[in-house]
Every structure is written in structure tokens, then in C-alpha cells.
Nucleic acid binder design. Structure first.
Lengths: 192, 192, 192, 192
DNA sequence: GCTTAAGCGAGACGGTACGTCAAGTCTTCAC
DNA sequence: GTGAAGACTTGACGTACCGTCTCGCTTAAGC
């Protein structure tokens, strides 16, 4: 019965204030304690209005996070794949060390029970970033700088997998200062 | 004021049937759809009885999973670190490809909102396994087989991080058949 | 600050199609399930336009009902008060036995929570009809046909009260065929 | 999915405090402004608990009203049908002139949109009272005191119909002081 | 004929209450 | 005192409809 709303008529004020309020609340109270109702109240927005544009609080926060973080690859291509990889790794670790990292944990946590959210996370966040590095790594392989038999996607996973491991399992704190060493291990191998 | 229950008086029947029912329900209905109420009903056990011995459904399932999976390191020490690492990696990937992997995802998901659960996961599951491999890797370093400047824990993360990345973010399906290649990349480096 | 709209500029098309759509929807879906939104959609009219001319759906339906039913006293004055009373009573019962009776129930139901609606119902519907019969009864009293000590208004209530009792409380279905008997009881008394 | 609760295990405290709180709120804020949530809060009771035992606020208030009003026929049988009818009529009018009358209006109003409520009103309130007077009137007829061709139920409607007419349509305030006159009109007829 | 002020269709908006769900606690009874 | 059964409080959920608002559009009146 509920018609799809017309995006052209969407109120920019509502859009903005919802994203802002959601993020602020999540930072202040923690991802778990945020409710759609609280976002609505804080954003001076009707609850139904939020549900008109987002399926749940996770979707709001994902968009808020993407909105805040900006598009993928903030790291310039200097031509030096090692340096750029290090910069990217360090950047991600630093980002995930902030309040936003905590929210990100919550989102990924919720994604374990909500396939649509998981899909949105991949589509709007992970894939663009993975794709960029796959391409960079592909170029490096083409230039003969890296082993040709290693799938770029695997390298990306070796790079970022451990970061998410620490983020989500909290076995150790994230250590942006060791980003360079990690890249070194990866590129040069572990054998003595 | 709820007294701590006396573990000596704990009914083994209740303990067993609760774990079994929880696992069965989680496999059948999915982690999300399991409720303590359903476990209690399926196990022919009072809801309060479950809450007497576990804080929530996640704790029940964590114990059920540990109970089913058995203790860490099912992989024998053959002396060949490369082969053993490969076997371990492949074993984990295979395990996480089953129904249990789905439950495991749910648990880690919930752990993002429940620090106590996160702690229990680390203590009862992750740390024993990480510790075992840290020791094996330490020995390998001592034997001069691996670079001495690489912390064993980092190696463990490089090994299992990507697995959890795929498990939790579902960017690609787990591929136990490529375990050997992954270990190879890691030990031999990616440089051409 | 919403200006009072200018009735001269009111679109007759809107007026008509709103009343018609409202009545049609109420008959089809039942009074309860009619919403202003649905009326607007069915009448091809903006929701705001309805709210410009009526305070709520009840007001629309009250006017629609009055519009359909026509002015009070469809019963000609034959000079025979008993016969005319019977005809009137029977007419009301028959009217209230139709779909319009159901809508009428809904309106009176809503009037219990909306004093303004109650007032409108009295003013536009009940009072004109009561007034007419009070006058007829007054004449009959003046002619010495009826007891002089009985207030005409009380007679009207004795006549129509039981009808509304059945309509609203549904203890029994309306029985237009017994209208004559009812008038008889009333005029001749119940004593043996 | 939701099991029917077991009435034997129903908490008397909850039952009582819910009815009391509902009535108090309805008197204080008016029937319309009562919400299930407010009743729950005022009664120190979970909202879910109210929904476990009653379908909606109307059902709560109906029971509360019945609980307060007590069983049908507070009027003793003196043997004098005229006097007893007068007493009953006056009693009802007085009752409906109080705050409870306002609540009663709200309930009957809601019953216009909720057939189940209407049925409950008839079953728990109206029918017992109507039945009592039908029997009394039946006896009077048997004794030859009243016309034998008038159905007792019709007499009851002639008696109470006008009361509900005034209650629900508010054409005039209830006038308990004229109860005797009304009975007189009815029993003795209106013809001069 | 051009301006302008209204009514109008459409539909997004803030808000209130709804009825539902699961969580975790408390109570009762049987053993 | 353990355990089964289940009623309880709590809090968030997502929905429905209300009545208001904002946006262009059309339409009639007045210059």
C-alpha cells in the first residue's frame, strides 16, 4: 500500500539533519544505544519520515558514515605502490581508531543479521575501495613489480583482513604506526 | 537479589539438552531467529534455568560451538611449519563454510554490541588458537626458518585476518582449496 | 496563518466529487476504513483541498449524507397525526437500514469524541427534524388530540429514541414493519 | 504464535490496578485522551501485559465500568412495576449524568467501529439489564397489569431508548427528575 | 493581454498512538 | 534448592493515519 516516495521532493533539510543527528548520537551514546526514535527526535524529524527513506537505523548510519568519510581512495597515486599501500593502510587504521570505527563495528555487527545491510556495506563502501586497490595492484603486476600469480584481490584481503580482524575481534588495538612494517612483511615475504 | 547458583547441583541433563537444542535451532532457523524462549522450549527446560547458567543466547551458542568444535589445534605438529599452517588455514576455512560458520558470524556480530561476549569469544576460542600458532611460529623463528623481525602474532593475523574478512564481509566465498597458495604468498612475499 | 478560503472561488467540481467519492468509499469500505487520503485520491482532489473546506472526514460524510438524504420531513402533512408519525418512523427506520444507516452510525460514533461534529449533526440533521415534529405535535395538542401535559419534544424522543437505541446498540435489527404498532403503544399507553 | 495466557496465573494486582488506573485516567483526561500506554504507565504495568488480557483500551474501560457499576438491577422488586420502572429509569439517568456517563458515551462511540466491543457491551451490560426488565414486564403482563400485545422488549426500548438518545446525541441534558413523568406517559398513553 | 492572487493536485512532513516482539526478571508450584 | 512453566516490566520496533506544509500548475479578476 505504501507508495514509493518521490526522491525529487525529498527535503534536503530532513536528509542532512537526519544524517547529522544519527552520527552525533552514535558517537555520543554508542551505536547500540541509538534508536530510530532518538534520531528522529534529535533531528527534529518525524519517525515515519526516516522510515520513508531508510529501512532502519543501520542504513541511516551507513549513509551518514559514507557521507562523512567521503568517497574512496583519499590516497593520491604517487606511483610508488609500497608507499601508497602503506598510506592507505595507515589511513584506514587511523579512521577505524576514531569514534567512526566504533560505529563501523556496530554496522558490520548488524550486517551479520541483515543481509541487505551487508550488501549495502559492500556496495557503497568496501567494493569501491577494494576495486581501486585491485587496479593499482594490477598495474604494479603489469609493470612487473609484483608476482604475477597473486590475485590482486587476495593482496587486498591480506592488507585489510588483519585490520578488520583487530577491529572486530579486538585481540589487539589497531596500530597505524606499524602500517609500513605490515606492508613490508607482505611484499617481502616472511621467510628468513 | 539473585544468589549465584551452586554449580555442584547443576543438572547435566539440562546442560546437555540446552547446548544441543541451541545448536540445532541455530542451524535450522538461523542464528538471528533463535530466542532463549525457543531454546528453552526445545530443550524442555525452563527459561529461567537457562538464564541461571548463561547470560544470554549468545553465551549458550558460544559454549555449544566450543563444545562441538572441540579444543584448539586439531592439526598435528609435523615439524613442517608451511604444511601445518596450510592444514590449519584450510581446516578453519572448511569449518567456517559449514552451518557452524553461520552461527559463528552471528556470534561475532553480537559481540560488536556485547563486550562480555567479545571477551568470552577471545578467551575461549581465539586466544588458545592464536597462542598455539604463535608458539609454533616462535619455534620456527628460533630455528631460523622465518624472519626474526616479524612478530608471530602479526603472522597469525595475516593468516586468519583475511578468512574472517571474507566470513564477515562476504566479499567472496571462503576458498579452502587455495589455502596452500595463501600460505605461499605470505611466506615468500609478493615482490616479483 | 491560514486565511479563510473564499467560498466564491470554490470549485463546484471539487465539492461534488468529494461528496460523491466519500459516500461511495464509505459504502464500499465501511465508515471506519475511509480516510481523508482515500477520499482525496478517489475524488481526484488534493488532500489539502478537502481540509480547506471541511475539518475532517466526518464533516465530509455528514454533508454527503445530508446532501443525499435531502431536507427534513419528506412526509406530507395529511392532517392525521397518527398516520404521519407512523410514516415518519417507518421512513427513518428504512433509511437507517440501508448503507447510509451504517455511515450514520459511524458519524454518531465519532461525534462522541468530537463535540464540533456532534453540534453539526444536531444542527444540520436532528434539530430540523425534531422541530418539525414538535410543531406537528404542538398542533395536535392544540387541537385537543393529545395530552396537553406531555412536552412534544419528549414525544419525539419516545418515538425516535428506540430507533437510535437499536441502531447504535444493535440489540435487535430495525423493524420498519412495526412502526405502526410502536406509534400505537405510544399514543394509547401500555396499561391494560 | 502467541499462546493464550493462563487465567489462573493472572496477577490480581495487575488486574486491579489496570482497571483502577484506566477509570481514573478516563475520568481525569476524558475517554478520548486515554491511551493504553498511559494506562500501563499509571497502573505500573507493562503495556504488553494489558494487551495480554484485553484487546484494547475500550475493553479495559468496559470491564472497569462494569466492575464499578456492579451487577445489573440495583433496584429492588417492590411489586409496584410503575414505581420500580421509575426508580430504574432515574437510576440510569443519574448514573449516566456522572463521569461514568461520559466514559460510557466513549465506549458506545468506539463500538460503532468495533463490532467485538459492541458485542461485549451488549453481552456484559445491556442484555442482563434488558433481560431483567423484560421478565418483570412479562410478569406484569401475566398479572394483567399491562397490555398483553406489547412485547416487553419494546417497552424496555421505549424506556431506555430516549435516555441513550439524549446521552449520545446531546439534544438535551438528562433529566432524572422527570423519570416518573416519562413512565407515566408510557404507561398511560399520550392520547387526550 | 498581463499580472497576480487564489484554488488546486500532489505528496512529503512532524506527530501520536498503535499493536507486536524479544529480552531478561520474578513468581508459583512440583519434586 | 533445582527446575518447568509462564506471567511480568521494559523498551524499541515498524505502521497507520492525522492534519499541516510546500511546491508548481491553472484559472479567474483587475488593471
Amino acid at each position: 500500500m505504501s507508495h514509493a516516495p518521490n526522491p525529487d521532493l525529498r527535503s534536503p533539510r530532513v536528509h542532512r539533519s537526519t544524517l547529522d543527528a544519527a552520527l552525533e548520537l552514535a558517537v555520543r551514546d554508542g551505536y547500540v544505544n541509538v534508536t530510530v526514535e532518538a534520531i528522529a527526535a534529535a533531528a527534529q524529524v518525524g519517525k515515519q519520515t526516516i522510515y520513508r527513506w531508510w529501512p532502519n537505523k543501520a542504513a541511516v548510519l551507513l549513509e551518514a558514515l559514507n557521507d562523512r568519510t567521503g568517497p574512496a581512495s583519499q590516497v593520491p597515486d604517487t606511483g610508488d605502490i609500497t608507499a601508497d599501500l602503506t598510506a592507505a593502510l595507515q589511513g584506514v587504521m587511523e579512521l577505524l581508531s576514531t569514534d567512526l570505527g566504533t560505529i563501523w563495528r556496530g554496522l558490520i555487527g548488524d550486517a551479520q543479521r541483515d543481509p541487505r545491510l551487508a550488501e549495502d556495506i559492500r556496495r557503497t563502501f568496501l567494493e569501491p575501495r577494494m576495486l581501486y586497490w585491485e587496479q593499482r595492484l594490477g598495474s604494479a603486476i603489469a609493470e612487473g613489480l609484483l608476482r604475477a600469480d597473486v590475485p590482486p584481490r587476495t593482496v587486498v584481503e591480506l592488507l585489510f583482513g588483519p585490520v578488520y580482524y583487530r577491529l572486530l575481534l579486538e585481540t589487539d588495538p589497531l596500530d597505524p604506526e606499524h602500517a609500513a612494517a605490515r606492508v613490508d612483511y607482505l611484499l617481502n615475504g616472511l621467510k628468513a
